[in-house]
Every structure is written in structure tokens, then in C-alpha cells.
Design a protein around this nucleic acid. Structure first.
Length: 892
RNA sequence: GCGAAAGUGGCGGAAUUGGUAGACGCGCAGGAUUCAGGAUCCUGUGGGCUAACACCCGUGGGGGUUCAAUUCCCCCCUUUCGCACCA
């Protein structure tokens, strides 16, 4: 196969070629045309179905998943980055011999499609389908190695019927239920607004003030899993600490107690929740939320009645978001009613306060002004009693001299039988005492709320519920699924959900009694769709259940999940909730869906801004970098703004399509992977892109210049008697394999991996310029270059595939797999030892690889630069780091 | 306010079981090639002081531990992100 080929022959030819190159380089070389190369390989991969995944029990599996996109119309740089990272992982793991599942799909329900319908009269479905088609060609053009046969689109009835099916299972188990809850309501558009449609408390479309409106809505009982969701965070070792903390905070577990404060002068009492039962002797009043069911009732018949009514009305009108604002002043009103502190026996007043939340705890709190900052401020304002019941260790508090609450732990005082206990012991003892006395009990509360999934929208999954005048709430029988969205509905943007207007959809027969029934017109939150799509991929055409449990048993969990931090809480928490619920339905075995999570940073770019005309496109600017930019509209000075996340409004976006047209997908991928490590923000740089492109061009040129020689070179490298520079090149080659493998494996240090390959390529280039490199037949150069190509394959697969066919005849890239390195080759013959005197580098010596510590020390002491520092000084001791460093420590 | 992450040349970033700080890329400078420009190739490039060597300084600031600190500990500053009346 290999033609005999002497080095002289090669050199003669090389020289003539070089000479010819000088006269007509263009004609000589095949130019690097990324477009041609990339389309060619994309076609080949498609034809050969290279990335199809199939279950194979004999092979270890690897499931790598990137967060699927919303089909907004075009992909953006954030997608390119996210999916490039995922593709590197997928291709790398495949080369390592793992059976890789790498799917892609579409988070296809959502508001923008409905807006397009309202604004431009396009049906949400057509709009979405067209966007999907376009974006799919964009993703294919980037060469991502997806198994497209598993593609899912959540707006397809084949998909959302399983949303409905899961809903019914949850409903059966009481995990889906209905309750009254507030929504944002625009009184002018007569419609419900999503949170993102409320801007500064006003409707985004008509700018009128948004009100709160109570509606009956569907919920998933996420709180049923609160404890497990919290506990299992500890097991998610492959997740960023940041995300784990965010989830913990979101779930917000508080351990405390419920205490009943009986009313004074009437039956019953108020149940409060506290985490500081050790301060109960300092509770000098009780505060209620204005929404508390007893708020008005307690005031009835008292002189306070009118004041309370006014207060409640006023506070309720301020929206939730306003109420949470910083510096919101503590306000309250006395209800006119009293209760008893069961511990002190004192009669204490009941107030309403604007800072007490009905949604948390019981909507009632015992107020301990000395040891809670809010209560302190409130008590100061209303002139209420402040009593110190916890003393810090290092000083003594006096109520009348306090300027703020003391909220830390300490020793209990003035606390009856509990006086003298520490806060910790007090909490335990008081909780026990409560149960003994029947005044209350130990209690745990979560900040986590149940998940409201109802949306008064069209473009989402219809909730499979019927309302029958006779039977009440009736779930749609599984056999009748899917409940499909009616196609023809009016999109006006006014009134309720368009589904309400569709009689064909709305009016139906009761599944139980056959009588007239009405369908639920709410659709599901799109987070429902994305809470289990990773399971659908394992068997995306399965029609007996959401997914085939056997396939899930093979593929789950997702080994590596990759996406933006913006989903750190909601999406990831809901997906965890679904996984646990589906596990309890015996559909899946895993407790957690994502074993490892990588949250990639944002793609940023510098911005330009004019004082009068705001953000400007860099291409519109007048002037220059040196003499300063000027505004094209007013000729005023333009300040080079900060580096910000790419966004249309800041006019600092780069369209991936333009980038690909100019440089190709490989350059786009290489740059995004090289410019920063995946988890950090990436600062876009046009010059950096040029640099990446230049590197690829250099690689291309090297192969076209040396291709023939390399193809003909000996592939069996003679292990012995290599000239020193070639031994060195081999060593670097193997060292690079080791480094890149570690960078890929451990922390996805792709930028460092690429840098190492570039370094190797620089060395190859240098070696190849020497005639000596070809004397042994070019085998070492060939091995090094092949290594470069293989190591680069996950990053720039098109270019590498093309070059590989040029130089490597014997095996395909797929068969070759990820290279191994030999420790023995890496082992250097001579070691470079740094010699320090008193910790400062004073000399460098080289010693044989097997030199003993003593001989290294002796050598170090002989070094002339070192000895000049030893003149007239006494050596105190010598520290040696084997094979690396000698530090000579002097006395004095 | 609480929590987290980060701060290294002109720029993006390397290096952390403590052991040559600045890999790799960009930019810049010089050279080769070219009629010229571009492209390409080669060389240099933290700062100070030098003719050069040498030496000194240097990883946000200050202190500490150590033979040795970008890396570990304490204090402070700055930036970014998340949470923010959760009783």
C-alpha cells in the first residue's frame, strides 16, 4: 500500500513545489473553502446516519443533552455556544467508545407564537413549524452530531398528549389540583398577563395599570416532594455549587414550631409559625397579613373596624411586586382584638402588618421586637413593648437603648423555666413543651410553593378536564387523549383564552354521564413540556406511554446536561419534580434526571452608546477607534460601552449565519470554544475569530503542502535511534494527548485543550521545516499530525474529516477512536531542574532522567550563577522537589 | 442586607495535592516575501533599570503561614450574578 519513498526524493519535490508556490501559490494549493468542505461532510454524515443512537446493552451508554431551544425563528450565538459545547462532549465520548445519545428538539409552545398570530395574523402552528424548519437547517449547517430521528416538538399532539396523560396520573394521585389564585389582569385588554408582560406594574401592550384577579387554577403539588427535592441536592455532586445553593434557597426549608395564641375574650385563637420559639417570652404582640381570613372579623364591632377596613383595602391594592420593594415602610393597624401569649400569660394586641405574607407559614406571626428586625421597626413606630429575652455572650442588651434587633443566638433570659438555656437548647425544649401542653407542635415549612400550571392561553397543552353540570370536575379518559387544540380560533389579544371562543372545543359530552359538559380552557405552562422531554428522547415514537421504560432504564439518567444558568431554578427544579413523580408512577427508575450539569456563560460583546441616541451598531459609527467614535445621527461623541450580553436592543449581536457564511461552522465552533472556558462568559472578538480561522487555514495549508509526503510516510515509527528533535516531537505529541484527554475529561477545559494542540502544531511546523524530520521517512511528523487531527475532531469535525482522508489511508476517523498515550514516551530523557536560592530562581540545570537526588543537589551547587549567591554565606538546608526543583536556603 | 463567583500583561485567557507566573490566541514591533498593499512566513513582546548581562518589581490592596504563595489563612476594596421583609 505504501509506496517506497525516499527522503531525497521528497525533498527534491518539495523544493520544486516551494519554488512553484512562490510564483503561483493559488494555483498550486487547493484553497480552504469551509463551505464546500462542511457541506460535503454534513451530507456524508446524514447519508451514513452517523449519529444514530441505538440501545446496546453490551456498550456503556452516555447521554449528553443540551437544553432544547424555543423556535423563535433564528438561532443566536448563545445557541451556537451551548450546542458547540455539547457537540464536543458527544463526539469525544463517541471516540472513547461510548454509546452516545445526543438528541435535539423544540420547546415549541409559548407566547411569541401567539403574539405573531395577534400581530401578523399567522397561525401559531404555521409560525412555529416554519421556524423549526429554518432553525433545523441552521443547526445542521453547524454540523452538530444529533440523532435527528429522535427529534421532538412539544407542540405536536404526539408529544403533548403525554403531558395530558401525565397530568391525569398526577390528578389521580392528588398531585394535580385546583385552587383559587391571583393572576395579573389588564382591565383594558380584559386579559390575563404573564409576569413578563407586566412592565413596571403596567400592561406591556396598552400601558394600563395591572390589577390582581382571583381565578380558579390548576396546580401541581411540588410541595409534596419538597423534602426529597431538598435532600437530593446533596447527591448532585456533578452540579455547580451555585445552582445547588439557588435550589436550596428556593425550596427554603425552615424548622420551627406552630404555636396557638388563644384569643382574649372570645373562642379560638391564632396559629402562628416561628423558627424562633426560643424568643416566645419576648412576643409582645401578634401580626397578621391583610389577607388573613380573620383580619376583618377580629376588628368587627371594635372602634378599629373602619381603620382596619381602610388599611386592608389600601394594602391589597398595592401589587405584590410593589409590596416587596426595598425600603417599603413598615405599616400596620391595630385590629382592636387581643390574644394571650400562652407562655407569659400576658394579653397582647393583634395587629395587621403590610410585611406579613399570607402565602408563607400561617399568615400570622408572633412579634418579638427585641429579636426580629421587622418587629423592632414596627414596635418602634407603633410604640409597642420591647422585651429582651435573649442575651448575647459578649454584652448585655437593654430594651430602651437598642437601635436594632438582636437576631443572633444567645442565652435565654426572663423566660420562666427556660431561663439560662442557650437558643439551641431552648428551641428543642420549648417545642417539646408545646406538644406536652397541646399549645402547638414542632413544624417545618417550605418557601417552595405549589406550581401553578394554568395559563389562559391558546398555544399550549390543553388541560384534559371536563366540567359537567351533574358530575362536576371530570378528567378526560386516557382513551380520549389527546385533547387537541382546535385550529380555528380568533386571535385578538383581548378577552380570555381564544379557546373560550371555540364552541367546537368548549362544548362536549361528559365522559361520565354523557350529558353536556364544558372543557377546561386553560392550557399548561410550557415548563410542563420541558420537564420530561429528556425522557421522550429515549423512545420518541413510542405510543403506549410517554416513553418506553426499558429504554429509559438504559439511557437514563442524562450523563451531561448543558444549558444556561437562567434555568437554574425553575426548569431544573420542575424536571427533578417530574422525575420523582414519574418514578413513583413506576415509569422510571432514577431519582434524579441529570447526573452532571454544566451551566455555560453568556456570549457578550462590547457596546457603543451615544448620549442622545442610545445604543448604536458598531458598523454605523463615524470616526475611528483612535480619534474617537461619533454618532451617525448627531455627530456627537460615542462612548465605547461595557461588554454586555449580546442582545438586539443593545445592538451588539453577531448573527451566526453571517459568521458561517464568512468563516464556516468550524471557525465559529473553534472560536467559541477557545475564547473562554465553557462556564465563563465569553467576550466576542472579531479578531479572535480571525485568529481561529487563521489556525484552521494554517492546518489546511500544512496538509496541502505536505499531504503527499505524509500519506506516503512510514506509519510504523521506528522507536529507536530517532534523532533528538524527533524524539522530542514524539514526546510532545504524547504529552499533548495526555493533557488534552485530561482537559476533556475533568473539567471541560476546552480552551486549554485547543491551546495544547496549537502548541503541538507549532512544534510540528517547526520540525517539518528541518530536513532531518523526513529522513526517517516522515513517520514522526505523520504521527504528530494525525494526533493533532484526532484531538481536534470534536471541535472542528468537518475540516479534520477532510484532512484525514488526505493523509491517513489505513483507517477511518471513526475506527481510529481517541488516541492513547504511552507514559514511557512522555518520560523525558533529561530533566530541567530549577535551582532557587532562598526561594528565588537563580539557575536552571538539566540532569539525566534517572539522576539521584544527591547528584542533582551536587550539580545545583556547582552552577556558576548559583555559587555567586552562596559567596560567604552558610547553607542552612536544601529542599528538593523531586525532578523539579532545588531550593538552597541560607542562614540569617 | 444575605449568599455565591471572580479580580493575573495592551486584550481574551493559561498555570492551584503550594514548586520556573503569563501557555495558547489576539494586538503590537522588527525582519523576509511583494512594484505596493493584503495575505503568508520568521523573530521579539509583563514592568523598571541596562549597551548587554545581571539585578529589582510584579497575579485587586494589606497582613500572616511556609524553604517556597496566583494557589492556604485573616482583614479590606472592586465587579458580576442570585435572593431579598419567608417570621
Amino acid at each position: 500500500m505504501i509506496r517506497p519513498h525516499s527522503s531525497t526524493e521528497y525533498w527534491t519535490r518539495w523544493r520544486t513545489q516551494a519554488a512553484r508556490n512562490r510564483s503561483s501559490r493559488q494555483a498550486m494549493e487547493k484553497r480552504y473553502d469551509p463551505n464546500e468542505v462542511e457541506l460535503k461532510w454534513q451530507r456524508i454524515w446524514e447519508e451514513q446516519k452517523s449519529f444514530r443512537a441505538a440501545e446496546n446493552g453490551r456498550l456503556p451508554k452516555y447521554y449528553v443533552l443540551e437544553m432544547f431551544p424555543y423556535p423563535s425563528g433564528r438561532i443566536h450565538m448563545g445557541h451556537v455556544r451551548n450546542y458547540s459545547i455539547g457537540d464536543v462532549v458527544a463526539r469525544y465520548k463517541r471516540m472513547k467508545g461510548l454509546n452516545v445519545l445526543h438528541p435535539m428538539g423544540w420547546d415549541a409552545f409559548g407566547l411569541p407564537a401567539e403574539n405573531a398570530a395577534i400581530e401578523r395574523g399567522v397561525h401559531p402552528e404555521s409560525w412555529t413549524r416554519e421556524n423549526i424548519l429554518y432553525m433545523k437547517t441552521q443547526l445542521k449547517r453547524l454540523g452538530f452530531s444529533y440523532d435527528w430521528e429522535r427529534e421532538v416538538a412539544t407542540c405536536s399532539p404526539d408529544y403533548y398528549r403525554w403531558n395530558q396523560w401525565i397530568f391525569l396520573q398526577l390528578y389521580k394521585r392528588g398531585l394535580a389540583y385546583k385552587k383559587s389564585s391571583a393572576v395579573n389582569w389588564c382591565p383594558s385588554c380584559q386579559t390575563v398577563l404573564a409576569n413578563e408582560q407586566v412592565i413596571d406594574g403596567a400592561c406591556w401592550r396598552c400601558d394600563s395599570a395591572v390589577a390582581q384577579k382571583e381565578l380558579e387554577q390548576w396546580f401541581f403539588r411540588t410541595t409534596a416532594y419538597a423534602e426529597e427535592l431538598l435532600r437530593d441536592i446533596d447527591r448532585l455532586e456533578g452540579w455547580p455549587e451555585k445552582v445547588r445553593i439557588m435550589q436550596r434557597n428556593w425550596i427554603g426549608k425552615s424548622i420551627g414550631a406552630e404555636i396557638l395564641f388563644p384569643f382574649a375574650g372570645r373562642e379560638g385563637g391564632l396559629t402562628i409559625f416561628t423558627t424562633r420559639q426560643d424568643t416566645v417570652y419576648g412576643a409582645t404582640f401578634v401580626s397578621l397579613a391583610v389577607e388573613h381570613p380573620l383580619a376583618l372579623e377580629l376588628a368587627r364591632g371594635t372602634p378599629q373596624e373602619q381603620a382596619v377596613e381602610e388599611f386592608v383595602d389600601r394594602i391589597k391594592q398595592t401589587s405584590q411586586s410593589r409590596r416587596g420593594e426595598e425600603g417599603m415602610e413598615k405599616e400596620g393597624v391595630f385590629t382592636g382584638a387581643y390574644c394571650k401569649n400562652p407562655f407569659t400569660g400576658e394579653t397582647i394586641p393583634i395587629y395587621l402588618a403590610n410585611f406579613v405574607l399570607m402565602e408563607y407559614g400561617t399568615g400570622a406571626v408572633m412579634a418579638v421586637p427585641a429579636h426580629d428586625q421587622r418587629d423592632f421597626e414596627f414596635a418602634k413606630k407603633c410604640g409597642l413593648l420591647i422585651r429582651v429575652v435573649i442575651q448575647p455572650k459578649d454584652r448585655t442588651l437593654a430594651a430602651d437603648r437598642m437601635t436594632e434587633a438582636y437576631v443572633d443566638d444567645g442565652v435565654m433570659v426572663e423566660s420562666g423555666p427556660f431561663t439560662g438555656l442557650s437558643s439551641g437548647a431552648g428551641k428543642e425544649n420549648i417545642a417539646a413543651y408545646l406538644e406536652e401542653k397541646g399549645w402547638g407542635k414542632k413544624d417545618i415549612r417550605f418557601r417552595l410553593r405549589d406550581w401553578g400550571i394554568s395559563r389562559q392561553r391558546y398555544w399550549g397543552t390543553p388541560i384534559p378536564i371536563l366540567y359537567c353540570a351533574r358530575c362536576g370536575v371530570v378528567p378526560v379518559p386516557e382513551a380520549d387523549l389527546p385533547v387537541e387544540l382546535p385550529r380555528h380560533v380568533p386571535f385578538t389579544g383581548k378577552g380570555g383564552s381564544p379557546l373560550v371562543e371555540s364552541r367546537a372545543f368548549l362544548e362536549t359530552a361528559c365522559a361520565r354521564c354523557g350529558g353536556a359538559a364544558r372543557r377546561e380552557t386553560d392550557t399548561m405552562d410550557t415548563f410542563v413540556d420541558s420537564s420530561w422531554y429528556f425522557l421522550r428522547y429515549v423512545s420518541s415514537d413510542f405510543d403506549q406511554a410517554p416513553f418506553d421504560s426499558k429504554s429509559a432504564a438504559y439511557w437514563m439518567p442524562v450523563d451531561q446536561y448543558i444549558g444556561g444558568v437562567e434555568h437554574a431554578v425553575l426548569h431544573l427544579l420542575y424536571a427533578r419534580f417530574f422525575t420523582k413523580a414519574l418514578r413513583d408512577l413506576k415509569l422510571v427508575k432514577v431519582d434524579e434526571p441529570f447526573a452532571n450539569l454544566l451551566t455555560q456563560g453568556m456570549v457578550c460583546k462590547e457596546t457603543y452608546r451615544c448620549g442622545r441616541h442610545d445604543w448604536l451598531l458598531p458598523t454605523d459609527l463615524l470616526g475611528s477607534e483612535q480619534e474617537g467614535w461619533r454618532c451617525p445621527q448627531c455627530d456627537g461623541p460615542v462612548e465605547k460601552g461595557r461588554v454586555e450580553k449580546m442582545s438586539k436592543s443593545k445592538k451588539n449581536i453577531i448573527d451566526p449565519e453571517d459568521l458561517i457564511a464568512r468563516y464556516g461552522a468550524d471557525t465559529a465552533r473553534l472560536f467559541t470554544l477557545f475564547a473562554a472556558p465553557p462556564e465563563k462568559d465569553l467576550e466576542w472578538s472579531d479578531q479572535g475569530v480571525e485568529g481561529a480561522y487563521r489556525f484552521l487555514t494554517r492546518l489546511w495549508r500544512f496538509v496541502s503542502q505536505h499531504g503527499e509526503a505524509l500519506a506516503a510516510a512510514r506509519s510504523d515509527v521506528p522507536k529507536k535511534d530517532l534523532p533528538a528533535p524527533l524524539r522530542e516531537l514524539r514526546r510532545l505529541t504524547h504529552r499533548t494527548i495526555k493533557k488534552v484527554t485530561e482537559d476533556m475529561e475533568e473539567r471541560f477545559h476546552f480552551n486549554a485543550a485547543i491551546a495544547a494542540v496549537m502548541e503541538l502544531f507549532n512544534a510540528v511546523g517547526q520540525a517539518a521545516r528541518e530536513e532531518a524530520a523526513w529522513q526517517e521517512g516522515g513517520g514522526v511528523v505523520r504521527e504528530s499530525l494525525k494526533t493533532i487531527l484526532v484531538l481536534l475532531y470534536p471541535f472542528v469535525p468537518h475540516l479534520v474529516s477532510e484532512l484525514w482522508t488526505e493523509i491517513a489511508s489505513e483507517k477511518s476517523l471513526d475506527e481510529t477512536g481517541w488516541p492513547a498515550y504511552a507514559e514511557k514516551v512522555i518520560e523525558p530523557e533529561r530533566l530541567l531542574i530549577v535551582v532557587q536560592v532562598d526561594g528565588r530562581v537563580r539557575g536552571k540545570i538539566t540532569v539525566p532522567g534517572d539522576a539521584s537526588g544527591e547528584s542533582i543537589e551536587a550539580e545545583a551547587l556547582r552552577d556558576s550563577r548559583v555559587t555567586s549567591f552562596l559567596q560567604g554565606r552558610k547553607i542552612q538546608r536544601i529542599v528538593q522537589v523531586p525532578r523539579r526543583l532545588v531550593n538552597i536556603v541560607l542562614e540569617g
